[in-house]
Simulated assay, not measured.
Amino acid sequence: MLSVSMENKENGSLEIKNSVENGRPPDPADWAVADVVNYFQSAGFEEQASAFQEQEIDGKSLLLMTRSDVLTGLSLKLGPALKIYEFHVKPLQTQHLKNNSS
């Protein structure tokens, strides 16, 4: 399982501090379902993390999720779903694209 340590920022997002592999953080595409669940539990979304477990969302699936998937597909309350997408899923997707475009 991936070891992830995080630091809360003022806007509720997290700064991800992973162990470094090949000069950069491990790719979320390599995360297992348990890693995704652990990430959201660590981010303070303990209740919502179970939806990722139930839907078997691994790292590859997480990186493919759209805003609509998060807001409606996981059956989460709207407030937490918006925060999960804007502060977590979208930044992970952006970072993944940056890391894999060079």
Rank of each mutant, 00 (worst) to 15 (best):
L63D: 00
A29S: 02
D35F: 05
D35H: 06
G23M: 02
S19R: 06
D27C: 13
L62A: 09
M65C: 12
S68K: 14
G23R: 03
Q41F: 02
D35W: 05
A49C: 04
E46H: 04
H96Y: 15
Q48T: 04
E10T: 09
K60P: 00
L71S: 13
I16H: 03
V37S: 12
P26R: 15
D58W: 09
F52S: 03
E46P: 00
T94P: 01
Q95R: 02
P26Y: 15
E54T: 14
K77L: 12
H96R: 01
V33W: 10
F45G: 04
Q41Y: 03
G23V: 02
I57V: 15
P80S: 08
P26V: 15
E10L: 12
T72K: 13
N38H: 01
Q95G: 00
S102P: 08
N8A: 11
I84T: 06
M6V: 11
F52E: 05
V89T: 07
V20R: 00
T66G: 11
K77W: 07
Q41M: 08
L97E: 09
L82V: 15
K77H: 10
Q48G: 04
Y85C: 03
E56H: 07
S3M: 12
K9C: 13
G12M: 01
Y39D: 10
K9T: 13
A34R: 03
S5P: 00
L64G: 13
S42Q: 14
D58R: 03
S101W: 00
L2I: 09
D69W: 05
T66P: 07
S5T: 13
F45D: 03
G73L: 08
A43L: 03
K83H: 05
L97P: 00
L64W: 05
M6S: 10
M1G: 12
R67Q: 15
M6I: 11
E7H: 10
D58E: 02
N8L: 12
Q95E: 01
Q48H: 05
P25V: 06
A32N: 08
N100P: 00
A32L: 11
N38W: 00
A34V: 03
Q53S: 13
N38L: 06
I16R: 07
A81Y: 00
E86I: 04
S75I: 06
V33P: 08
G23D: 04
R67I: 07
D30Y: 00
W31C: 02
D30E: 07
E7G: 01
V89R: 08
L78Q: 12
M6W: 07
S102N: 09
P28L: 09
H88K: 03
W31D: 01
V20Y: 01
N22R: 09
V33A: 08
D58F: 04
F87V: 02
N99M: 11
I84F: 00
N22M: 04
Y85S: 06
A81R: 07
S13A: 13
N11H: 01
E47R: 14
S5N: 11
K98S: 10
L97I: 02
H88I: 02
N99C: 04
E47G: 03
M1E: 11
E15Y: 06
K98N: 13
T72I: 07
I57G: 12
E54Y: 10
E46V: 07
V33I: 14
D58I: 02
V89F: 06
N38Q: 06
